[in-house]
Design a protein around this nucleic acid. Structure first.
Length: 644
DNA sequence: TAGAGGTGTCATAGT
DNA sequence: CTACTATGACACCTC
């Protein structure tokens, strides 16, 4: 069935006297062979799904957006982040409880100070006193060259050649071989989640931004995943869903484990890469373990069996944190690594800010899209206000809630802007507006392909007299060519009013207008067809415009969400970084305080026999290691119970 | 010449 | 029920 068939039938079928329009239309429709939508339904459905998939990918939404497990992982990451905060809070509570338990254990009623061998052994110092003591001999501040400095600590670390008993003595009693496997697993899961998030970023735009850098780029060469990760720049649904897996696999590769060490050798001594104790217990209440210097904990591996890299300490190394931040910047802002590194210098001040991304092409088109939608809404509202007499726009029901901008008011009417995005080129083309701007009328397409033969003949073929070509005739020919098919028909049928009126008049005025003229049935039928087609044409234009606006808004939403995600990830990295710095400071403090403590004979306390514990009231207690051991075990059980 | 994009139109469901 | 709108689908045009 061709369009010509429809039109010719439509034209003929309506000449049936004074039947209502709908019956005419019904006749028109029934007479047409069914378009057999069902025959293609199954194939179309499959195609539609496929198309939608591809559209989603094109819009920047990877499959992980729809992948429940992927989303679940993301939620887990966020949840763990929250839990981490709670855990830290709880650690503080636990510290207080620990301090209280020094007096009376809430569970056992045990009085711990009573177990101290002698009153002199239990040395209670206020934290202020400790700090004063330290400052007196070794003042340190925020940036002081404290023994926390890598070199000094390394020198201060008891060497591996020390007697085994001394090494064991230096171990934290709470950590020696008693590290909770649950905590370790939790840390690993947390780390996995972080890496998966990184992988998601890497598998999308970051791979193009970062890894297309020249091979000599320090970023691309230093980034721990770059040399080993099979980055798929050609993102597909399948690959997008597998990104995290590849990262997980790489996590265990020796290259990854060794890379942070190589990339930040200066920080290595502070981060015991072969220790599972320090960082994995930070979130718990094991303050004794926290206070113990890393070099002490490092010896725990003599008895702790297989060594695992410190998850957060090793992989979230300083350099790697920087690179992650840089990658986030690159992802978020579309910067190249050099630009990102420049921004990184100002990172602390604007980490919470997201730069205006309106420079990106997509954002530009997005804003244009919103403005284009607003043009229709504003014009439609204007037309509705004037609809009592004559609606210039007709019943344009579409309105957009986008911000109102007048930018496209004129452009939208023109509709053909070569520099426009592909979405915005297809713009609303209001015949009424075109009629108001006659010089723009030629813009509209003239679909005369299915014009009724009779109408075509009478309208397009000029009478022989017109062949005498004067300028007027040429102009008339030009205007003829610009006329729409229905205008040609109306002209051929000698309809005594304009198509604009036919289409845009309110129904009452329209009927009134029809009653004023003595019109044949064919004329009435054509007029009603013109009105129906004209209204449907505007409806189709609105529909298409609305569809494009929806797509643009979705694109904008995706961009916003990606920005938020990058920002949150960046903040998380910053938090982890500051957390680690705090831990290092605490470790140094512990060392200094413990090293300056003297018993009644003026001899230093043996780290194998005593440990410092931080009480909730700010005091620091020196307790025997056996007791600290019991406390730690007791405290380790509590978080497990709490988790259940 | 094939394909993409734009447009008009029809059919149909919904308001 | 009528008038109108919204939208998928299709055909055709233009580039």
């Amino acid at each position: 069935m061709t369009r010509l068939d429809r039109s010719s039938h439509s034209g003929g079928g309506h000449a049936k006297g004074s039947r209502p329009l709908n019956s005419l239309l019904a006749c028109h429709r029934v007479a047409q062979p069914p378009s057999a939508p069902g025959s293609r339904a199954s194939v179309q459905d499959i195609d539609l799904i496929d198309i939608l998939w591809r559209q989603d990918i094109d819009l920047g939404a990877g499959r992980e957006v729809f992948d429940y497990s992927q989303r679940q992982k993301e939620q887990d990451v966020e949840k763990e982040l929250r839990d981490g905060g709670e855990q830290d809070t709880w650690a503080g509570e636990g510290a207080e409880a620990l301090a209280r338990n020094l007096l009376v254990d809430g569970e056992t009623g045990e009085s711990f100070p009573a177990q101290v061998p002698s009153g002199e052994d239990q040395t209670a110092l206020s934290l202020e006193e400790c700090l004063r003591l330290l400052e007196a001999t070794c003042p340190f501040g925020e940036n002081a060259e404290f023994p926390a400095d890598i070199s000094s600590i390394t020198e201060a670390v008891p060497s591996e050649s020390e007697p085994p008993d001394l090494q064991n003595n230096l171990l934290s009693p709470l950590l020696t071989g008693t590290e909770s496997p649950f905590d370790l697993e939790q840390q690993w899961q947390d780390l996995m989640s972080i890496m998966e998030m990184q992988a998601m970023e890497v598998n999308t735009s970051a791979s193009e931004i970062l890894y297309n850098a020249p091979s000599g780029d320090p970023l691309s060469t230093n980034y721990s995943l770059a040399p080993n990760t099979p980055i798929n720049q050609n993102v597909s649904l399948h690959q997008a869903s597998l990104g995290g897996c590849s990262q997980d696999f790489l996590l265990f590769s020796p290259e990854v484990e060794s890379l942070p060490v190589a990339s930040s050798s200066t920080l290595l001594p502070l981060v015991p890469s072969n220790s599972t104790s320090l960082n994995s217990t930070f979130g718990s209440t094991n303050l004794t373990g926290l206070f113990f210097p890393p070099q002490l904990n490092g010896t725990a591996n003599d008895t702790a069996g297989p060594e695992l890299p410190d998850p957060l300490g090793g992989l979230l190394d300083e350099a790697m944190l920087d690179e992650i931040s840089l990658m986030d910047l690159a992802i978020e802002e579309g910067f190249n690594p050099v630009q990102a590194s420049q921004l990184e210098e100002e990172f602390d001040s604007d980490s919470g800010l997201s730069l205006d991304s309106s420079h990106s092409p997509s954002s530009l088109s997005s804003s244009e899209g919103s403005s284009s939608s607003s043009s229709s809404s504003s014009s439609s509202s204007a037309s509705s206000s004037a609809s009592s007499s004559f609606s210039e726009e007709g019943a344009v029901g579409y309105s957009s809630d986008s911000e109102t901008l007048d930018l496209e008011e004129a452009e939208g009417a023109v509709g053909y802007q070569p520099e426009y995005s592909k979405f915005c080129r297809m713009s609303y083309q209001d015949p009424a507006q075109l009629s108001c701007l006659p010089y723009l009328e030629h813009v509209g397409h003239n679909h005369t392909y299915n014009m009724a033969p009779s109408a075509l003949d009478s309208a397009d073929l000029p009478p022989p007299s017109a062949l005498k070509k004067g300028s007027k005739e040429k102009q008339a020919d030009f205007l003829d060519k610009q006329m729409s098919r229905d205008e040609h028909r109306a002209r051929a049928m000698k309809i005594p009013f304009t198509n604009d009126k036919i289409i845009n008049l309110p129904v009452e005025e329209f009927n009134e207008l029809l009653s004023k003229y003595q019109l044949s049935e064919a004329q009435l039928s054509l007029i009603r067809d013109i009105r129906r087609r004209g209204k449907n044409k505007m409806a189709a234009q609105n529909c298409r415009k609305r569809k494009l606006d929806t797509i643009l808004n979705l694109e904008r939403d995706v961009e916003d969400l990606q920005r938020d995600k990058a920002r949150l990830l960046r903040e998380k990295v910053e938090f982890l970084r500051s957390l680690r710095q705090m831990k290092q400071k605490v470790q140094s403090l512990y060392q200094e305080v413990f090293g300056r403590l003297r018993d009644e004979n003026g001899r230093p306390y043996s780290p194998s026999q005593y440990a410092l514990q931080y009480a909730g009231d700010g005091s620091v207690l020196l307790i025997p290691r056996t007791m600290a051991d019991q406390q730690a075990r007791r405290q380790e059980r509590k978080p497990k119970d709490r988790r259940k």
